[in-house]
Computed example of a mutant assay.
Amino acid sequence: MLRDRAEFVRGFESLAGRSRLVKVGEEDASLLYASELDILRTQLSEDGAEVVLATAGAAGAVLQTGGTVVNAPIAAAPGGVVDTMGAGDAVFASVVASMVRDAPADAPTWEEALEQAMAIAAATVRFHGALRACPARPRPRR
């Protein structure tokens, strides 16, 4: 699917530098940049992305906006992990919702938004498929 990595990176960077929110993961850093996720996160922030959300699987997530950097570990939830597909997308969707609903503006409110996002990801991975689940209202098992 990735025919020309260099061209893809050029296009991505041209959009990322003008974006309100950019989400990247460990695989993006490795595949596209042969780099570490923290280095890519910092680079995207320095290049103009307003908010950079970096998801690192079992290592949690980091959100950077300007000089503010907040971290959140994976969240605990009842039950075992069934399917990790969609966890990063759940984090992304939750952060978008927080930005629209709450307009976080300082480290404590960004930390709260990221912790909520990680709780939603924890609920999401308790079910098969990549559908977002809310921790207070998990989807019923089929």
Rank of each mutant, 00 (worst) to 15 (best):
residue 107 A to S: 13
residue 74 I to G: 15
residue 105 A to T: 13
residue 56 A to C: 08
residue 79 G to N: 02
residue 37 L to K: 00
residue 75 A to S: 12
residue 56 A to D: 15
residue 77 A to C: 10
residue 100 V to T: 06
residue 84 T to G: 03
residue 114 L to N: 14
residue 23 K to W: 12
residue 141 R to A: 08
residue 6 A to D: 15
residue 123 A to V: 03
residue 55 T to K: 04
residue 37 L to A: 03
residue 11 G to I: 00
residue 31 L to S: 01
residue 136 A to M: 01
residue 55 T to Y: 10
residue 13 E to N: 08
residue 114 L to S: 13
residue 93 A to H: 02
residue 73 P to I: 00
residue 92 F to W: 08
residue 128 H to G: 05
residue 126 R to H: 14
residue 42 T to Q: 15
residue 67 G to D: 15
residue 92 F to V: 00
residue 40 L to C: 05
residue 124 T to D: 11
residue 71 N to L: 03
residue 9 V to T: 12
residue 41 R to M: 12
residue 112 E to N: 11
residue 47 D to S: 08
residue 103 A to R: 14
residue 33 Y to S: 14
residue 1 M to I: 04
residue 93 A to S: 09
residue 113 A to F: 02
residue 5 R to K: 11
residue 67 G to S: 13
residue 83 D to V: 01
residue 100 V to P: 02
residue 6 A to E: 15
residue 68 T to Q: 10
residue 102 D to G: 06
residue 79 G to K: 01
residue 111 E to T: 04
residue 23 K to G: 11
residue 67 G to W: 09
residue 99 M to K: 06
residue 22 V to E: 12
residue 40 L to Y: 02
residue 127 F to L: 08
residue 108 P to L: 02
residue 117 A to E: 09
residue 134 C to D: 13
residue 78 P to V: 02
residue 75 A to F: 04
residue 14 S to Q: 09
residue 3 R to D: 11
residue 138 P to R: 00
residue 51 V to G: 05
residue 56 A to G: 14
residue 62 V to E: 15
residue 81 V to Q: 12
residue 110 W to D: 08
residue 54 A to L: 08
residue 129 G to P: 14
residue 32 L to I: 00
residue 10 R to P: 15
residue 33 Y to D: 12
residue 142 R to L: 14
residue 97 A to D: 13
residue 90 A to G: 10
residue 51 V to N: 12
residue 96 V to Q: 10
residue 81 V to A: 06
residue 60 G to Y: 00
residue 53 L to I: 00
residue 42 T to F: 07
residue 32 L to T: 02
residue 44 L to I: 08
residue 14 S to M: 09
residue 24 V to M: 03
residue 26 E to H: 09
residue 130 A to V: 05
residue 42 T to L: 11
residue 119 A to C: 14
residue 105 A to R: 13
residue 68 T to R: 07
residue 140 P to F: 02
residue 22 V to N: 10
residue 11 G to E: 11
residue 72 A to Y: 02
residue 142 R to H: 13
residue 70 V to A: 10
residue 74 I to F: 06
residue 1 M to F: 12
residue 60 G to W: 03
residue 24 V to W: 00
residue 84 T to P: 10
residue 16 A to D: 14
residue 93 A to M: 02
residue 49 A to K: 06
residue 22 V to G: 09
